[in-house]
């Protein structure tokens, strides 16, 4: 092994202090959708020190994903849950992952998200986004959801915002750029993913009030 679990932890402590490191390492975060947003969010969270992740996606890696998603050529055809798990373990081999290779539906919300403190909405379809946001807000009074809407196209990157809509709902994106009418590009999508990952870290550390 290149480093021990304790060495990874000590590096995090050296970077942020004992208390912050402890909060980050104990957080349980779900990433629903492992595409352009989700694969990037999960990668950043692991690098930031998050260890407990629930990764949810029914799909396989496709050639058309490589231009913006955190997968590699040799992973085409592999289930995204498996491929991403492999990639994330190359960053920190000691992460504790729950992999759910399935479609999210309202009926499955309790079983999929029971253990998560914070849920990242990283779907592509607006109906799925609405279903998950409404479901979390209605059925999980203790959980927070960080959703995304509008990150397609080549418009001004400064329009990719992070907004707190209420105590439990955050929304990132420009709110309007729809992938059905405009193509998606790596940097602008990753801007949105970074806004989401940054918010997750702030929420974990109690910086969002």
């Amino acid at each position: 092994m290149l480093f021990t679990e304790e060495e990874w932890k000590q590096q995090l402590v050296a970077r942020c202090g004992e208390e912050v490191a402890s909060k980050i390492q104990q957080a349980q975060v779900a990433v629903a959708g492992l595409g352009g947003l989700g694969s990037n969010i999960a990668t950043m969270l692991v690098r930031m020190g998050v260890e407990h992740l629930i990764l949810i996606d029914f799909d396989r890696v496709d050639f058309s994903n490589l231009h913006r998603q955190q997968y590699f050529a040799e992973q085409i055809g592999v289930y995204k849950t498996e491929a991403l798990a492999e990639n994330l373990r190359c960053i920190n081999p000691y992460i504790k992952l729950k992999l759910c290779c399935e479609r999210v539906s309202e009926e499955k919300l309790p079983q999929l998200f029971a253990d998560a403190d914070i849920i990242c909405e990283a779907f592509d379809k607006p109906q799925a986004k609405a279903m998950l946001v409404n479901g979390v807000l209605e059925y999980f009074p203790g959980k927070v959801i960080v959703a995304a809407s509008g990150m397609a196209g080549l418009g001004d990157g400064n329009l990719i915002k992070a907004r707190k809509l209420n105590k439990r709902l955050y929304l990132c994106g420009d709110g309007v750029s729809d992938c059905e009418t405009t193509s998606v590009h790596a940097a602008r999508v990753t801007l949105c993913a970074a806004q989401q990952a940054h918010l997750v870290q702030r929420i974990i550390l109690g910086l969002e009030g």
Partner: peptide, 26 residues
């Protein structure tokens, strides 16, 4: 407001409504 209640909730002039409209992409 849960979707199941959209038909039963009555709006009045004193209300403050916030509607988030999701667009595709992710």
């Amino acid at each position: 407001i849960p979707r199941s209640r959209y038909a039963s909730v009555i709006l009045t002039d004193a209300d403050k409504l916030e509607v988030v409209c999701f667009v595709g992409g992710g």
